[in-house]
Design a protein around this nucleic acid. Structure first.
Length: 348
DNA sequence: TGTATTTGACCCCC
DNA sequence: GGGGGTCAAATACA
């Protein structure tokens, strides 16, 4: 597939196509009875897509091309990391750094999500975010009431996936967890995650602080999500928040607060299964906001700590790009695959 | 027995 | 030198 189109261009095209698809959906929604939230969400997604496309354009010029690390795997990922040899000692910060030609230290994409849990279960830790993490450390942080937990991708060794995350419970609000992600997933989970929540199926539960959380999403494979009844997502790119009334995406279910949402159906969510991954989520398909499997009232607040360009590079584009498979997208929308997107000045 | 978690020690950067 | 991040041996668990 690595043809005339660069990966970056594909990403761009993907964002633009996504925007177009969303616009179409919005148009359809205008004709039917749809909630204000639905329309609002569509608008946000459209704006987000185009914002990202623009950012990619701006940013792309100065960054040069980025290629997915491994063909066939996570090609939707931005993977800004320089190909770090597996032989290279991944010692400490190495995974967190990129050394370009000038030996300039560069930080991997890094962003933070805040997860609020409102149930007692939540006190044991935030939800599974769809990836398989292995806890490799815990440390008391100066000035912090609660220890910080360190996780890395389960497939770190087998697939050289260097994604890591840190989970820190808020001092002020024990129900609030700050999760700092670093690096993007290059493991198979990442590619799977192009579709909504990857299912950590085979790798059961998370460690300690997750163990009380039922890996519900695992039951639904890659195409289903669960939404909390009052999910609220805040992205920096979108600078807006959308809420998803449970009634729209799945009924409340007594104990959990919400029931599984099956995206295959022609539901609102279904039509957005791909779009959902985008909200400025660096990590390829970071669906955290949609993967909360547990108790009701979870709230994810997504924000990036790294500079915006990093986010974009990191994954937004590719990752969120709904188009892991360009053929599909190009077919699904009436776009001429031969359209000269690469024509100089086309976007400017 | 294999995999995940715990935890003290080590390393690196500021 | 201290703090944050990671390693890796020990331990727990299925």
């Amino acid at each position: 597939m690595e043809g005339s189109c660069s990966w970056e261009q594909k990403t761009l095209i993907g964002e633009l196509i996504q925007g177009m698809e969303l616009a179409k959906q919005l148009r359809q929604n205008l004709g039917v009875k749809s909630s204000a939230e639905t329309r609002e969400f569509l608008v946000q997604r459209i704006l987000s897509s185009y914002e990202k496309a623009l950012l990619i354009l701006k940013w792309g010029g100065s960054m040069g091309q980025q290629q997915p690390q491994a063909l066939g795997v996570a090609t939707n990922l931005p993977v800004p990391e320089s190909p770090m040899s597996v032989n290279e000692s991944p010692r400490s910060d190495d995974q967190d750094l990129i050394r370009d030609g000038s030996k300039k230290r560069k930080v991997l994409p890094r962003w933070t999500d805040q997860v609020r849990v409102s149930s007692e279960n939540g006190l044991e830790g935030p939800q599974d975010d769809g990836y398989s993490w292995r806890k490799y450390g815990q440390k008391d942080i100066l000035g912090a009431k609660y220890p910080r937990s360190y996780y890395r991708c389960t497939f770190r060794n087998t697939q050289s996936c260097w994604a890591t995350k840190q989970v820190q419970r808020s001092d002020e609000d024990p129900y609030l967890f700050e999760i700092t992600y670093r690096g993007t997933h290059t493991c198979s989970q990442a590619s799977n995650s192009v579709q909504p929540p990857t299912s950590p199926q085979n790798h059961d539960q998370k460690p300690n602080n997750h163990n009380s959380i039922i890996p519900q999403q695992q039951q639904f494979g890659h195409c289903s999500h669960k939404l909390p009844s009052n999910l609220r997502v805040v992205t920096e790119l979108g600078e807006s928040a959308f809420t998803f009334p449970s009634s729209q995406y799945g009924g409340l279910n007594g104990e959990d607060g919400f029931s599984p949402l099956v995206l295959e159906s022609e539901t609102f969510m279904g039509s957005f299964s791909r779009s959902f991954v985008s909200p400025a989520t660096p990590e390829s398909g970071y669906y955290a906001p949609f993967q909360m499997n547990n108790s009701a009232g979870l709230q994810y607040v997504h924000r990036s700590e790294s500079d915006l360009t990093e986010i974009i590079s990191a994954n937004t584009s590719a990752t969120n790009s709904p188009i892991p498979d360009m053929d599909f997208s190009l077919d699904s929308v009436d776009i001429d695959p031969n359209f000269p997107f690469d024509t100089p000045g086309f976007f400017s």
